[in-house]
Structure formats: C-alpha cells, structure tokens
Write a protein that binds this DNA or RNA. Structure first.
Length: 287
DNA sequence: AGCCAGGCCCAAC
DNA sequence: GTTGGGCATGGC
C-alpha cells in the first residue's frame, strides 16, 4: 500500500482543518489521524511532527488532487499575520484554530452537502451524507476495514425520486437535492467549474449559485468559500451570530452589519477569518 | 420532553 | 424588499 510523506508542513492541524465545519466526510481515528474520502479517493491522513503522511495515495495522486485539496501552496502564516494586524480581536480565535486551512472541495459535493446542512446539526449532516454515498455512490473498495464509497454523481441523483431518498432521512431537503441535481446536470459541470476562476467575481458566482433550489444566502456563501475559491465569502450561521455578538458586540439579527464589518476589516480573506471565528465559537468554552 | 441545528421556501405584506 | 410561518429529522 502506497503512502506519501510531506516534510516541514506549516500551519496545518488535522483537528482544526476537519472540525471547523467545512467538510463532513472525515472522521478521527483513535491515534489522532483522520480517514476520509475526497475526489473518489479513500485515504488516511496523519501528522507526525512536522510531517504530513497521506496513506493510500501516490505522488501522482498528490500532485493531481491532494496538493490543491489541502491548499498547500497558500501561506497561511502570512494571512494570519495580516488578520491580526488588521483587527486586535481575532487573535484569540486564530490562536484557537491556528492550523486551519481552507480545503478546495469539489463543487457538486459541496453544493449538496450544504443544502443538507440547512437547519440541521453536524452529526446528522454527516449521517445523511454517508447514507447518500452508501446508497448511491460508486464503490471505491475496502479501506481500513470498511467499504468506501464516492460521493454520488449529479447524474445519479438527478435520476432519482424523493421516494428513493427516503432511506437517507433527508426530510424536506430531498426534493431540493433532486431538483438541484437536475439543474446541475442541465447546466453542466463546466458552467460551475468556470465559477472558480479568478476572473469571476464573488457577486457573479453568488447569483449563479443562488439559482439552485435549497441554496439561500448562507449555503451559497459556504459553496463559494469551500469550493469556488471565493475567500471573501463570509457565511453567517447561528454560531457566527453568537461569536460576532460575543467578540464584536453585534446584535445577533444584524447580519448586514456583520457582513459589512467582515468585508471592511478582513477584505479578501474574510472567509478564512470566518473559519477561525466559527471554530473558536464551537470549540472554545467562552468566559 | 422540548428546544435546537452551519436556513430555505413561499406567501403576505 | 422585508418579514414570518412552516418545515423533516433526530442530537442533546
């Protein structure tokens, strides 16, 4: 079984990366490593000292997929310094989740995952997604004692009815998923992939993604941030409302004010700031 | 037991 | 353009 090792990894903490709410298919092992599936590849990721070990991956896999997935070519140290310099308050949130990185996730999977996330809790979101994969995803093979499945394709989900999705316990989201699958296959992969481009603005991508059923402002911002490389996207959910109230004194209903503040203070890396803040609020026992 | 969860849709202002 | 009720399901 192949594995690859990267030395001298910086600004990289597995718990911070996988537990900051951006992804749902990674699970911690007893030894602190994480096992998950992305890009149709099942791997285990471990950090030993400053070395990142990706098990069940080749160097070709790394160059083709994992390098971008883990955003290895971005200097988070520089971003964190800039955020601290810009705002005195965010430092303690950064301290709490200093090893967060924004994963570059697949668009289709991210769209569906965050439609499922609406008015839902994280353990149940993960369960729904795994169920979707086991029922309708392509079998990848056995790895570490379990059969692993890819995320189901848009074509596959577009061919289903809400009755087919009953075992996944998606509730009222099932029809959104099927309608969005149909819309996605109609528009085509390319339509969405192009939204990743630096020449596509946040506003343009936001409007296009918001056409999908089940995608409101919050979900759209998550899709933009986690799969369309729009690092200025600043998703505001109930946890963000809490932390923005706690750290900055915003009224929890003042979403507009929070967005304005984020844009003015954190600028084109507002989404990265958002990740530190979200992680801080969810994991830190507040005073 | 009852409130809540990474909100959205849709109708009614 | 904004506001509010309704919403499947199950975690805690």
């Amino acid at each position: 079984m192949s594995r690859i090792v990267l030395d001298e990894v910086k600004d990289f903490n597995l718990e911070h990366i996988f537990d900051c709410g951006q992804c749902f298919r990674w699970n911690a092992e007893d030894d602190g490593s994480y096992t998950g599936v992305a890009g149709g590849r099942a791997v285990n990721v471990a950090l030993s000292g400053k070395s990142l070990v990706i098990d069940n991956a080749t160097s070709d896999d790394f160059e083709e997929f994992w390098r971008d997935y883990f955003d290895m070519d971005t200097d988070y140290g520089k971003i964190k310094d800039a955020l601290r310099a810009q705002d005195p308050v965010i430092g303690k949130a950064i301290d709490e989740g200093e090893g967060i990185r924004l994963l570059d996730q697949e668009i289709w999977e991210t769209i569906i995952s965050f439609i499922i996330s609406a008015n839902n809790n994280i353990p149940r979101i993960k369960g729904c997604i795994e169920s979707l994969c086991e029922n309708f995803g392509e079998k990848i093979g056995r790895y570490r004692g379990k059969t692993r499945y890819a995320f189901p394709t848009a074509q596959k989900l577009a061919s289903l009815t809400t009755d087919d999705l009953v075992p996944c316990r998606l509730g009222y989201r099932a029809k959104y998923i099927i309608n969005t699958a149909k819309m996605y296959t109609k528009l085509g992969d390319k339509y969405f992939e192009e939204l990743k481009g630096e020449d596509v603005s946040y506003e343009d991508a936001f409007k296009k993604i918001s056409q999908l059923q089940g995608v409101g402002p919050k979900v759209a911002n998550c899709i933009l941030l986690f799969s369309l490389k729009k690092r200025d996207a600043f998703p505001i959910d109930v946890w963000m409302k809490k932390v923005m109230n706690h750290l900055y004194g915003f009224e929890e209903e003042d979403v507009k004010g929070m967005e304005k503040f984020a844009s003015e203070t954190f600028g084109d890396v507002a989404g990265i700031a958002q990740q530190y803040l979200f992680y801080y609020m969810r994991n830190k026992a507040l005073d």
